[in-house]
Nucleic acid binder design. Structure first.
Lengths: 187, 187
DNA sequence: TTTTATCTACCTGCCACTTGGTAGGCAACT
DNA sequence: AGTTGCCTACCAAGTGGCAGGTAGATAAAA
């Protein structure tokens, strides 16, 4: 396997960044987790910025693929919309982690430009998908669906953040319920 | 002035933490900003955890006072509710910063317990105030108002996070508008 | 078929720098 | 005399990153 180490590094870095952010990434701990030496990571990712950008890029690529797969599978926009919060729920289930790009959004001022771009791409991917699904479900006009999509994305990110700060998964569920009750998400 | 340095440290630490989080706080830079030496900060705050907790505590105390003042001044719950998003907008206006406690919520796993407690207190203060105002405006039953308050708080935190990641203040305004259009916030 | 060269993927060892924190001193005020 | 408030000087641990080496695979040249 030529790039198994590279994949292992990406996977470990993703897990770490979801719990400790970009600033929490460091070559030594990452190397120990993968089972190689710190300097070897520089072979695959010359600088920390390269690593961070690669992790964030992989993150939104995976998310985009998962969302498209969900849509292709169910063929039901409303059902997809209903399941969308589960995407963010999974991170909380997995050791009270959070969306890598939400964390990095907070760290915005300290991110290399290449990383910032990937973080924005994650938001773009989510908003575009939500907008498409909202339109398909005929829940909003094509102009309004874009703004609604952004609102849903931001609200869910906030719910995840609040739930994480309490280590309380049920709080996340309650917040999603409240969004539905308030009309932000379809009931 | 006995505690002017202490106050200056707290103020500088607040500004820094709003842009770089708890992890971004460091004694050297803080001292330089205040005009004293790094070691001197340890006189006022023995450890970084003490400093972080003090900053977070002061943050929610100030917020609580500002919210109560707003309520006392206008005497109009609906008007207060309408102005609530401005509290979070101010951080963005001030150098694209964000709520100190939202940032620290992301850093949850790396926070000393004392800091975590103050971060939670900030959320409690906001939710309690919102809940009170919602009830007073007769917009929700006393049970429902609590859940609605949490939803509003989380959604606004998410909006701030997203707007910050784009350095786009108008995006924050657009998101608040969308929340109103969707019925999460009163129009 | 042996030799030479190149590439991959990793290693050891080091460097300059930053981190939070400590020890001890000193001058002013009470 | 004791306390307050700050200082200089230092430290151990950790940071990202770099220079240089090496074992093994591949492949072209002799």
């Amino acid at each position: 396997m030529s790039s198994s180490a590279r994949e292992a590094i990406l996977a470990a870095a993703k897990r770490t960044a979801q719990a400790h952010g970009y600033g929490g990434l460091n070559f030594r701990d990452l190397a120990a987790e993968v089972g190689i030496k710190a300097a070897s990571i520089h072979y695959h990712f010359p600088s920390k910025a390269d690593l961070g950008a690669a992790v964030a890029r992989r993150y939104w690529e995976d998310t985009a693929a998962a969302l498209e797969a969900m849509l292709a599978e169910t063929q039901d926009p409303l059902r997809c919309l209903h399941r969308y919060p589960d995407v963010f729920r999974k991170a909380l289930e997995n050791g009270n982690r959070m969306c890598l790009c939400s964390f990095m959004a907070a760290e915005h001022d300290d991110l290399p430009d290449a990383v910032k771009r990937e973080v924005q791409a994650f938001a773009d991917v989510n908003v575009a998908w939500l907008s498409k699904v909202l339109s398909a479900a005929a829940l909003a006009g094509s102009e309004e669906s874009d703004r609604r999509a952004r609102a849903i994305f931001a609200a869910i990110a906030g719910a995840q953040l609040l739930a994480r700060s309490r280590s309380d998964l049920s709080l996340y569920d309650a917040l999603i319920d409240s969004y539905r009750a308030a009309g932000l998400l379809p009931a």
